[in-house]
């Protein structure tokens, strides 16, 4: 799946997690802008993993700070 299609799917998945309705750009950070706590991160990551049938290990999660980085990582992990 190319970046645009991946981004579109992720946009759909993140919606219910974006409780405050923050406007999301590639530069939005999960901890800062989106205020995701550790529980939200876990559920959100699980949703992404299930949708794309991939694993995003904790090691990889540590490298992902922004929404754009997440999309890039998911594109890459789909191989």
């Amino acid at each position: 799946m190319d970046r645009a299609a991946t981004a579109e799917k992720i946009a759909g998945i993140i919606e219910p997690f974006n409780k405050k309705g923050v406007e999301i750009t590639d530069a939005s950070t999960f901890a800062g802008d989106l205020e995701f706590d550790s529980l939200t991160v876990m559920d959100f990551v699980a949703a992404i993993e299930d949708e794309f049938d991939i694993i995003i290990s904790m090691n990889q999660q540590a490298e992902i700070e922004t929404y754009g980085q997440l999309i890039d990582a998911v594109v890459k992990l789909q191989g």
């Binding site: 699980a46 993993e49 694993i55 290990s57 904790m58 090691n59 990889q60």
Partner: peptide, 17 residues
């Protein structure tokens, strides 16, 4: 190692991973 957590006591989540 690569570290992959799953939801507490969730057998299906563990299996998928």
């Amino acid at each position: 190692a690569e570290v992959v957590p799953f939801k507490h006591n969730d057998i299906e989540a563990m299996e998928k991973r």
